[in-house]
């Protein structure tokens, strides 16, 4: 096979998978602009007059803005608190490892192996006891705890990539731990920190298990709103799609604008 053919083939395969991944979102977008009748017609309609009817109905039926604010607050605050804990943790493990560091890292990750439902009961009871059910603070705490292990791991691997000698040079230059962190580690690891933050924010935004179980009308996030469309009254595909599209749009936009940051975060270790 010559070079040209390989290139075409590779491009074709890449496009195939890209379209495969994009298809559900495309379908969602299509459904959101149909009427309920069009949405359930077989064969599916590709050409129709788009309508904003479903969006209007979602806005009228539910307090979209309220749920969106819940999503925004819980995802942003949980990520911020998570970073405040994970950065120093990853920093100390990356640059001042002890005998226990590797074991501790594995233990931290192991908490992610357990299915969330396994901890639901005790957590629910704790939340009930402390009056945190259906509060933003409660969900924020939950999202933070849920993402913390991965945050530590992502940051740990990211910080490990920083050339050790650069940090040593700063110590020789008289930098204290705080100086070193502020002037050297932070500027060099900002890409990695930003991509970690972004990923965790997306996860918190999209999280549904804890949101559904610990939240309700007060603190419920957009995930809770979407789920409420699959109700005993039956499925309303067009409205469900419209609500979903509105739920994922902000986070998709964020991801789109931060593409460069994400790529930088993943390749920053290459700077030597």
């Amino acid at each position: 096979m010559n070079k040209q053919t390989t290139l075409y083939l590779r491009t074709a395969i890449a496009w195939f998978f890209a379209l495969l991944l994009f298809f559900p979102i495309f379908w969602l977008g299509l459904m959101a602009f149909k009427t309920e009748q069009q949405a359930i017609s077989t064969p599916p309609l590709f050409f129709f007059t788009p309508t904003l009817q479903s969006f209007h109905e979602v806005m009228a039926r539910d307090n979209y803005v309220g749920y969106a604010i819940n999503s925004l607050i819980t995802s942003v605050v949980s990520t911020a608190i998570g970073l405040a804990i994970a950065i120093p943790a990853a920093y100390s493990m990356a640059f001042f490892p002890t005998r226990g560091t590797v074991g501790l890292l594995k233990f931290i990750l192991s908490s992610r192996y357990m299915p969330g439902v396994g901890a639901l009961m005790p957590i629910y009871i704790c939340f009930q006891y402390f009056g945190m059910l259906d509060t933003r603070a409660g969900l924020t705490l939950m999202f933070m705890l849920m993402n913390l292990p991965i945050m530590i791991w992502l940051l740990y691997t990211n910080l490990r990539e920083l050339p050790r000698e650069i940090l040593e040079a700063s110590r020789m230059d008289g930098a204290t731990v705080v100086d070193e962190f502020r002037h050297i580690v932070l500027p060099l690891a900002v890409g990695g920190i930003a991509s970690t933050a972004l990923v965790c924010m997306v996860w918190a935004w999209n999280e549904s298990f804890w949101s559904l179980n610990l939240g309700a009308a007060n603190a419920g996030t957009l995930a809770w709103l979407i789920a409420s469309y699959s109700s005993p009254e039956g499925l309303f595909w067009a409205k469900l799609s419209a609500a979903s599209l509105m739920a994922i749009a902000p986070i998709m936009a964020l991801g789109w604008f931060c593409q460069k940051q994400l790529v930088q975060g993943m390749t920053f270790g290459a700077v030597k």
């Binding site: 050339p163 000698e165 650069i166 040593e168 040079a169 700063s170 060099l188 700077v271």
Partner: peptide, 9 residues
Amino acid sequence: FQSYALYPH
């Protein structure tokens, strides 16, 4: 240092 260890930023 052998690797110069300059602050790249």
